[in-house]
Amino acid sequence: MTKLNQNRIIDSAFKYFGIFCTFFGLIVLAIFIFNILAEGLQRIDWDFLTNLPSRRPAKAGILTAWTGTAWILGLTAIISIPLGVAAGVYLEEYGKKNRLASIIEINIANLAGVPSIIYGLLGLEIFVRTLNFGGSLLAGAFTLALLILPIIIVATREALKAVPKSLREASFGMGATKWQTIWYQTLPAASGGILTGIILALSRAVGETAPLIVIGALAYVPFVATNPMDEFTVLPMQIFNWVSRPQHGFVVNAAAAIIILLLITFIMNGIAIYLRNKWQKKVNW
């Protein structure tokens, strides 16, 4: 009888422990968001979005930062999506499943876990110095593309793996070549999973600061970038710069910029979830 009671106590104790753990993270997050909103929401207006940076906090805006983020996002997508998806398709559909393949697979998974600052150092050496891109958007985009490439490759492979063999057989059985099968059947069937992976990878790139600092992105850029060779800043850099200033006005600015950055990542995650749900509903094998 005592043993039973003891078990019951442990049982309910664990339940409350679990509830505590769940809410711990949520509450911290809620406090954070509440603080940011309380501090920064009042600061967001049209001027804030369209003003150039300034030494006076009330006049400073994030035009260069969010246009820089948009540039980086676009360029990173253009570079990383074709490379990542093609590499994933090769590894999953063409590559033989042998020792070499499993070594490559493990290494790609490892690459996804390499600290981002290491990618910054790599980018500094290859893109900034060797290829002479300087501290430009192009150098930043290539660096971030390398950073998220493993994520896209893994997502592509997982999505392709989930496509049933019967679909490939049906296509081959009709006399389709491997490429036709991939292009007309396998890739479209996997597109939901691939897109989700791409968007999650890009939303990670949007929030990265460390590698961009290493390659020399500037915190103060007084002009809007107009071509990929321009110097640039991005939202996280701007935030990083502002929070390190002593004046309270800049802290408010940083909070406002954080709201914008959060908004961008929330929207991107929302799109990813939407695509995943739509995809799940459309195809049931």
């Binding site: 049933p164 019967s166 679909l167 057989e169 049906a170 296509s171 059985g173 059947q185 069937a189 459309k282 195809v283």
Partner: peptide, 10 residues
């Protein structure tokens, strides 16, 4: 060829 399990394309 026709397979065991119906496998129309989606």
């Amino acid at each position: 060829m026709v397979f065991q399990k119906p496998n129309p394309f989606p």
